[in-house]
Simulated assay, not measured.
Amino acid sequence: MKIEKKNVLNRLKRAEGQLRGIQKMIEDEQECIDIVTQLTAVRSSINRTMGLVITNQITQALEDPSLNIEEQEKKLQQALELIIKK
């Protein structure tokens, strides 16, 4: 998960920067619509990041030959539960 880990961390750092920007917008009393637009962008970014993490879990469960069928099914079920929670 080295590449995926780097990608996920970069996305989280970007979202963190966006959140700091939103905090500044609120402190500067920016327009509500502009703040909501930025919040929507952060939410979308986080949702995509969650998708990457869940996809990684599914891929690992399917590609790991050391796991038996029951372990694979357990990991897939966990991933599905994360998707449903979302």
Rank of each mutant, 00 (worst) to 15 (best):
residue 22 I to Q: 01
residue 66 S to W: 01
residue 30 Q to D: 12
residue 53 V to Q: 08
residue 35 I to M: 10
residue 4 E to L: 13
residue 53 V to K: 06
residue 77 Q to K: 12
residue 45 S to W: 00
residue 21 G to D: 10
residue 19 L to H: 00
residue 80 L to Y: 04
residue 81 E to P: 03
residue 28 D to W: 09
residue 82 L to A: 14
residue 55 T to C: 13
residue 74 K to A: 12
residue 54 I to E: 11
residue 80 L to V: 06
residue 78 Q to F: 11
residue 86 K to W: 05
residue 4 E to R: 15
residue 48 R to C: 04
residue 55 T to V: 12
residue 79 A to G: 09
residue 59 T to W: 02
residue 37 T to A: 12
residue 8 V to T: 12
residue 5 K to M: 06
residue 22 I to K: 10
residue 75 K to F: 02
residue 48 R to W: 00
residue 23 Q to Y: 05
residue 39 L to C: 07
residue 52 L to M: 07
residue 77 Q to S: 14
residue 73 E to N: 13
residue 7 N to H: 14
residue 77 Q to N: 14
residue 36 V to C: 01
residue 5 K to G: 09
residue 46 I to N: 02
residue 32 C to G: 05
residue 41 A to D: 01
residue 77 Q to T: 12
residue 59 T to H: 10
residue 19 L to E: 04
residue 84 I to S: 09
residue 59 T to M: 06
residue 39 L to I: 12
residue 29 E to Y: 06
residue 2 K to S: 09
residue 4 E to V: 14
residue 64 D to C: 09
residue 58 I to V: 15
residue 42 V to C: 02
residue 40 T to M: 07
residue 19 L to I: 14
residue 35 I to F: 00
residue 58 I to Q: 11
residue 39 L to E: 06
residue 28 D to M: 06
residue 34 D to C: 01
residue 11 R to T: 08
residue 81 E to C: 10
residue 12 L to I: 08
residue 76 L to M: 14
residue 12 L to Y: 07
residue 86 K to R: 15
residue 46 I to E: 03
residue 37 T to I: 02
residue 4 E to P: 01
residue 18 Q to R: 08
residue 55 T to N: 14
residue 56 N to F: 04
residue 44 S to P: 00
residue 68 N to P: 05
residue 35 I to P: 00
